[in-house]
Amino acid sequence: MPLLEVRDLVVEFPTRRGVLRALDHVSFAIEAGEVLGVVGESGAGKSLTGAAIIGLLDPPGRIAGGEIRLQGERIDKLPPEKLRRIRGRRIGTIFQDPLTTLNPLYTVGRQLVETIQTHLGLSDAAARKRAIAWLEEVGIPGASQRIDAYPHAFSGGMRQRVVIALALCAEPMLVIADEPTTALDVSVQAQIISLLKRLTRDHGTAVMLVTHDMGVIAETSDRVAVMYAGRVAEIGPVAAVIGTPAHPYTEGLMGSIPSLEQRVARLRQIDGAMPRLDAIPAGCAFNPRCPRVFDRCRSERPELMAAGTTQAACWLHAGVATNV
């Protein structure tokens, strides 16, 4: 049984001009201790998937179909109070901007102690000791003094370390990290990624890593799901998705990343842009931009199907056992 299983998840936003379907039958699973990267361009629905799992969809967004199971137990229909117990205790979260995640009016120690006590029920002294241990573990120098400092006294990278401590201090089984390094400089980004990798490995925590940065995915994830227009376009082991992508969108995405190794005269580009939610084309959502489009793509929507070592939602792989 996978740790987290998302099946046919549909998220809709009712608007005055009709219902917009932001996630359309998204399915994937995360095993215990596994890192699943979720990559895609803005508006592909990757952050929304994370928000739906932890029950933090902004109204009027709502789950309109499918199911989410944590260790086999359905969590998408839980009352808010029960879901609140799961958030933090069993699923930790790390968001992009550490400044908005931390409460500026409380010391970082108080925020850590509160989280630890809420979920683990320790005494004041024990919780504080645990909080200092966590700050040390995420690499805050002078943790026993810094615990009484306010978030503004920390630099961007240090703040993100505090946020990681906050997400992990109740020892959740799964962490949803939504663009955890996007707001940071590259040298700090490398520090945070290696910290996150080390801690989740040491504690056996599974991670759903949502990011637009293929590089971060490449060095961190075991498997990767590529999202496009609210659907999973391709999912599979990270080396296969990056090295031998089966979906033309993944291929285009990889080709458009400038490389340090070699210099090319022109980058490969995917013409056009991702469709808006109110104008998703019939058939495969990628068909107007796809260089290998054929008739079936325009009329019929492909589901995920085996494509070599990955699974791709693309008719090119229909009825072909291996095509890599």
């Binding site: 490398a190 971060v216 060095e219 994830s221 990056i242």
Partner: peptide
């Protein structure tokens, strides 16, 4: 700066992490 960049050609390889900001 160059070492801190993730390497797409070798998935799973760790970056050399440098201290400080």
């Amino acid at each position: 700066l160059l070492d801190a960049l993730p390497d797409l050609a070798h998935p799973g390889r760790s970056r050399t992490s440098v201290g400080g900001e």
